[in-house]
Amino acid sequence: SAVVMEEGSPGEVPVLVEPPGLEDVEAALGMDRRTDAYSRSSSVSSQEEKSLHAEELVGRGIPIERVVSSEGGRPSVDLSFQPSQPLSKSSSSPELQTLQDILGDPGDKADVGRLSPEVKARSQSGTLDGESAAWSASGEDSRGQPEGPLPSSSPRSPSGLRPRGYTISDSAPSRRGKRVERDALKSRATASNAEKVPGINPSFVFLQLYHSPFFGDESNKPILLPNESQSFERSVQLLDQIPSYDTHKIAVLYVGEGQSNSELAILSNEHGSYRYTEFLTGLGRLIELKDCQPDKVYLGGLDVCGEDGQFTYCWHDDIMQAVFHIATLMPTKDVDKHRCDKKRHLGNDFVSIVYNDSGEDFKLGTIKGQFNFVHVIVTPLDYECNLVSLQCRKDMEGLVDTSVAKIVSDRNLPFVARQMALHANMASQVHHSRSNPTDIYPSKWIARLRHIKRLRQRICEEAAYSNPSLPLVHPPSHSKAPAQTPAEPTPGYEVGQRKRLISSVEDFTEFV
């Protein structure tokens, strides 16, 4: 048969007729292969192709491409040299491709048809291009793949890379869960390890502090508590009631339409708007009261037996805890006409967050109470924005700035309102402590230090009264110190430094 060459192609190359033996071998191979691939376009007849790359030819070592076609129900084999250009295909004639002069020997084609199974398996396991790669995943090629499931790999992101949580363990979102698992493993320790309690022994800490320079003076030496005195035992138990972190309780009120001037209507609300609910979820963490331990979680007086509701929101960081007394989460009882059960919590909070959804101005004093010092007013606006402002009593104007209003988005509203309420509550605590000038409020841990110092002074006084020969370590507060001759004046800087060093040991009130 003659071949018409394309323009620009090399000279004529004689194409030899395939021997009958080659056709029989390739026909047997075509019957084993699956003929249901995917359909081509209507211009080209339905056909199945599979590209198999052999590394070497037997005796020649030339890479070839073998295409199996099922045109007219008769499979045909096409061998081509890759750099050459194939002729145009037609549905009426068999596929013809040019070969190099080196394939002119018909014996070479017979060798190609009689490829060993080793070469076929190696060509099938190679990388296939384009559409033949999808075909190689079918059941027909499963014989050339190794048996057994593939090893499982770690989760992959859409980009093909490992997620960040699997790369950096410290930033993994499941870090707290692993800590819980470690605690569970520790709890399952053997009885021999049960006595080993991690941490620092208080006796060891005391020993280090006792021999430090801070205890060089007799006034700073630790003293032993009497065991037989019940009054001192009660004082030590009272110390446990003062937490070592700051605590805040903040009221949250929802004002519906037409309720801006009605205290009873505001306290009777059992739910609010959708934006109000989203605002609550951002204030803190939802907790169930019956599962809380009052000595570990500050509840601000809420009952854990269901008297004040089942849930509330709280927030904490390293040095403070805040609980929100939310009116809509507290039960509304029919027998309580004046809502006294709610007001006994909300009316005693220094700061209230008022979500004013009424469309009218909310005035300070609508919720009557002796300790309502500051109101954080949240007014929802259009386009997911809110107006946040402050209202306070006249005696609080020096501590709280009420002249600045803020426009905040719904997303950042819980954070801004919480921070403003916490700052206002700190100012309210300082303002409330002014009624007792001898006990200015600095912080909870300073209050613990003052309680310890008062307890020490009482013990020293009782020891001096029981044994008059012992001198008083600290003179009583009601006694007057003996007159001392004025010492020589020293520079102001040295006096300030000495006073600062003494105050650092005794108390921190002056620095606050």
Rank of each mutant, 00 (worst) to 15 (best):
Val354Lys: 00
Asp334Val: 12
Val416Gly: 00
Ala327Ser: 10
Asp217Ile: 14
Ser358His: 01
Gly365Pro: 06
Arg339Leu: 15
Gln457Gly: 09
Thr332Gln: 08
Val388Cys: 03
Met420His: 04
Asn356Trp: 00
Asp349Arg: 04
Ser273Glu: 01
Val378Asn: 01
Ala483Ile: 12
Ala464His: 08
Arg498Ile: 09
Ile266Tyr: 04
Arg339Ala: 14
Cys305Ala: 12
Gly347Asp: 15
Met330Thr: 05
Glu257His: 07
Ile287Arg: 08
Glu488His: 13
Leu289Glu: 15
Cys340Met: 15
Glu288Pro: 09
Asp357Met: 01
Asp334Arg: 15
Ser469Arg: 08
Tyr276Val: 01
Ile502Lys: 13
Cys305Thr: 15
Glu307Phe: 11
Gly309Glu: 10
Ser389Arg: 11
Gly258His: 13
Ser244Glu: 15
Val252Trp: 00
His474Met: 11
Cys340Gly: 14
Glu288Gln: 13
Glu360Cys: 09
Gly306Glu: 13
Lys221Ile: 15
Arg418Tyr: 03
Thr366Leu: 05
Asp317Lys: 02
Gly258Ser: 04
Phe415Trp: 03
Leu329Gly: 04
Leu286Cys: 07
Pro486Met: 12
Leu449His: 08
Arg500Lys: 14
Ile367Phe: 09
Thr509Leu: 06
Ser409Lys: 02
Tyr465Trp: 11
Leu501Gly: 13
Glu278His: 06
Val236Gln: 08
Gly256Asp: 05
Val351Lys: 01
Lys333Ala: 13
Gly301Ala: 12
Gln497Lys: 08
Cys385Trp: 15
Pro491Lys: 08
Asn425Pro: 02
Ile266Ala: 03
Leu449Arg: 10
Leu449Pro: 15
Ser443Glu: 09
His325Trp: 04
Glu307His: 12
His316Phe: 14
Phe362Gly: 01
Pro437Gly: 06
Phe362Tyr: 13
Lys363Pro: 12
Thr328Phe: 01
Glu488Cys: 09
Ser409Ile: 02
Pro294Lys: 13
Gly300Thr: 07
Lys333Asp: 10
Asn386Thr: 04
Thr247Asp: 04
Phe371Ile: 05
Pro414Asn: 00
Val388Asn: 00
Cys460Val: 09
Val505Thr: 13
Thr277Leu: 09
Ile407Met: 11
Pro489Thr: 11
Val304Thr: 15
Pro294His: 05
Lys249Gly: 06
Leu302Trp: 15
Ser273Tyr: 01
Ser477Arg: 11
Ser260Phe: 04
Ala427Leu: 08
Asn227His: 14
Arg434Phe: 08
Leu381Pro: 00
His316Ala: 15
Lys480Cys: 12
Tyr465His: 07
Asp349Gly: 14
His431Gln: 10
Pro331Glu: 05
Ala265Leu: 08
Asp317Phe: 00
Gly365Ile: 03
Ser435Met: 10
Ala483Tyr: 11
Leu364Gly: 15
Thr379Ser: 06
Asp336Thr: 11
Gln370Arg: 15
His325Pro: 03
Ala483Gly: 13
Ile446Leu: 06
Asp357Asn: 09
Leu501Glu: 13
Ser235Ala: 15
Gln419Phe: 05
Pro468Phe: 10
Val505Gly: 14
Val416Asp: 01
Asp317Gly: 03
Phe311Tyr: 10
Pro243Met: 04
Arg498Gly: 12
Ala481Val: 13
Gly301Val: 04
Gln259Gly: 02
Val354His: 00
Pro476Asn: 15
Ala322Lys: 02
Met320Lys: 02
Leu422Trp: 04
Ile250Trp: 00
Arg500Trp: 07
Phe508Asn: 15
His345Pro: 05
Asp382Val: 02
Asn372Phe: 04
Asp246Glu: 13
Tyr465Ala: 14
Gly365Phe: 04
Asp382Asn: 04
Ile446Asp: 14
Glu488Tyr: 08
Ile319Tyr: 11
Arg448Pro: 13
Gln310Asp: 08
Asn269Ser: 02
Ser260Trp: 04
Cys314Pro: 04
Val297His: 14
Val255Trp: 02
Trp445Met: 08
Asp246Tyr: 05
Val505Gln: 14
Arg275His: 01
Leu422Cys: 05
Phe371Lys: 14
Arg411Ile: 08
Leu413Trp: 00
Phe324Thr: 02
Ala447Gly: 14
Leu225Phe: 11
His451Gln: 14
